[in-house]
Amino acid sequence: MKSENILNVTELLILQELMNIAFGSASADLEEVLDISIDLKVPAAEMVPVTKLKKYIQESMALTNKSSMVEEKFWGDFNGSAILVFPVEIQKNIISLLSAHDYPATDMEHIEGMDSGVLLEIGNILIGACIGKISELLNTVVTYSPPSIGSGSSSDLDFFIDKFEQPSSAIILKMEFSFHQKHLNGKIMIITSYNSINWLKKSLKLFMESYE
């Protein structure tokens, strides 16, 4: 791979900070809409060859057949896919994330069975706000697919990874978080297509130059 076709350490650090800002903004949106608070952790940015992407996602997202995964694609200058992964325990506790204020005990029976809907909504808010904020900071706009839900199974992951062109590399932005006082964790990963790289390099430079 030519050096001009990969992101250098500084560019990855800028992306890491943008991810930090974007997920911080997304968590505020989630608090506003669903009254769910999140404890944020430090993000990471790296490049991973598409041939190693499946193993990388399985390991870094601790995916199992029982994980829940919300996926959303995005298109524009900045394009790729984002996934939000929750561990198996989330399925038993997802309703507990919603505040009693919004869903009083008497209504709880009506929302049982809506676990997937709640996960989709959380995924939609976090992924949409996160991608939206990165796009805004890099002065572009993106369009989104509706979110879809899957498991961490090998076949679901194959379907997801097929979209990324081999033998290129994918640009990965990831962050862990936990739901405040709920002992539940989640992980978000934004996987950017290799064909965004030239635009990304230019935009990251412009972002830093805006502070000159």
């Binding site: 900070e17 930090n20 800002i21 997920f23 903004s25 505020a28 608090e31 900071l137 405040h180």
Partner: peptide, 23 residues
């Protein structure tokens, strides 16, 4: 980057002068 109301209230309670958002 953390703009959640809970975080902003907590830092103000802890004595922060102000809480500004990134960038």
């Amino acid at each position: 980057a953390d703009r959640q109301k809970a975080s902003v209230s907590r830092v103000l309670e802890l004595g922060a002068w102000n809480s500004l958002k990134k960038p």
